[in-house]
Design a protein around this nucleic acid. Structure first.
Lengths: 206, 206
DNA sequence: GGTCAGTTAAAACAGTTGTTTAAAATAACT
DNA sequence: AGTTATTTTAAACAACTGTTTTAACTGACC
């Protein structure tokens, strides 16, 4: 395991847990058991480290997700919204093969990035992965053509909020579910819960 | 204007903008034009200041919201979910009379509190305002009695996520809406957009 | 063996953080 | 007016932040 990867792994875990602002380089380097200066040597700055952590996941997820979305669009003249959102499930869960707790970590990171650091991650994602977003918009449009561009814009951001917020506090929510309902839920269980919700939300009558 | 209130106002604005972690006491005291030590003198600690900022809003909102929710429950044997969520609108918008930008500030604070500081605000709200949450659950149950307690739990948290995330980035979203659709949206416009979405989400078939 | 790029290491940097101290200023009360 | 209590002030505190520096080490190539 190289120093660079030890840092990436440690940073990923801590960023997901406590946010970008809430995690110091010293916490990262001591969890990674590397020297403090290694971060700036290998990545240049903390901000670049954040980008590197996110890129590792996005580069893995992005092509799979684009493929799944075009598959949904090709499979039917008018796919259901549930089908569109279900296209996310497999690529997201595949992150668990890519890395242990990959799905959960990535979604939590996404949540952190949207509220920490005043939207710089939103800029990062929309400028670096625009085809992904376009593919998603196209799929939703095909499933619900009556939805205006403006309404679509809002509902997709509501959806983003639902996902991202749920995942950034998913650990706490799964704990509560275990206590109150004696039910063990994992990240794929949460995803299955959320799909009907967002599909119905996006598909709400105008 | 007392020192205590100057601090509360400045803290509220900065907390909403940049989060609790992202705001320093020195930023707060220089915006409030008071001495740095005044925060610890009047509030004891930064954490207590956060609680005080949130309490000021919750004490204003909570009784109005409880009343509105019981009114919905009393008005019909089976109110619609849109009616239940619409009960939030007036009490939330009334915060604008209570304080300038009150609605937007409060909702943004709520969003910050849920992602910053590892869920301590969730604990604060659920332990301090339990009747509010119970009233909400009761209203949703009356509108959709087939929904199991567990599904209800998840969907209410999804809803919380939608609201809270949307509001914590509402400034950015309203900017984009202005650029892309040449449409001026204010906070009440966003609320009106989000109600059909969350109502449909909570009301999704099981 | 010596040279040299790549990497690691300890230490210090300058700046910021929340909090505390102790003195000065103001207000309230007898 | 004189004596409390309350509030404000400037200064310092120790701890922590991201980043830089300088020296030491590593392994490869000639």
């Amino acid at each position: 395991m190289t120093t660079k990867n030890r840092i990436l792994d440690a940073a990923e875990k801590l960023f997901a847990d406590k946010g970008f602002n809430g995690t110091s380089l010293r916490e990262i380097t001591s969890l990674a058991e590397v020297n403090l200066a290694a971060v700036n040597y290998h990545f240049g700055s903390k901000k670049e480290l954040i980008k590197a952590v996110m890129s590792r996941y996005m580069n893995e997820l992005s092509p799979n997700l684009e493929l799944a979305l075009t598959n949904v669009c090709d499979s039917s003249d008018k796919p259901s919204l549930v089908a569109v959102f279900s296209a996310f499930v497999e690529p997201l869960l595949a992150l668990n093969h890519f890395k242990e707790n990959g799905t959960s970590n990535f979604l939590q990171l996404l949540g952190r990035g949207y509220t920490d650091s005043q939207g710089f991650l939103r800029w990062f994602l929309t400028t670096r992965y625009p085809t992904l977003i376009n593919g998603f918009v196209a799929a939703v449009h095909k499933a619900y053509p009556e939805l205006s561009a403006e309404d679509m814009f809002w509902r997709l951001h509501f959806t983003m909020g639902t996902i991202v917020f749920t995942m950034s506090s998913s650990d706490a929510l799964m704990d509560i579910a275990k206590n109150d309902f004696d039910r063990n839920v994992d990240i794929s269980g949460v995803i299955k819960q959320v799909i009907p919700y967002v599909a119905a939300g996006v598909g709400a009558p105008i």
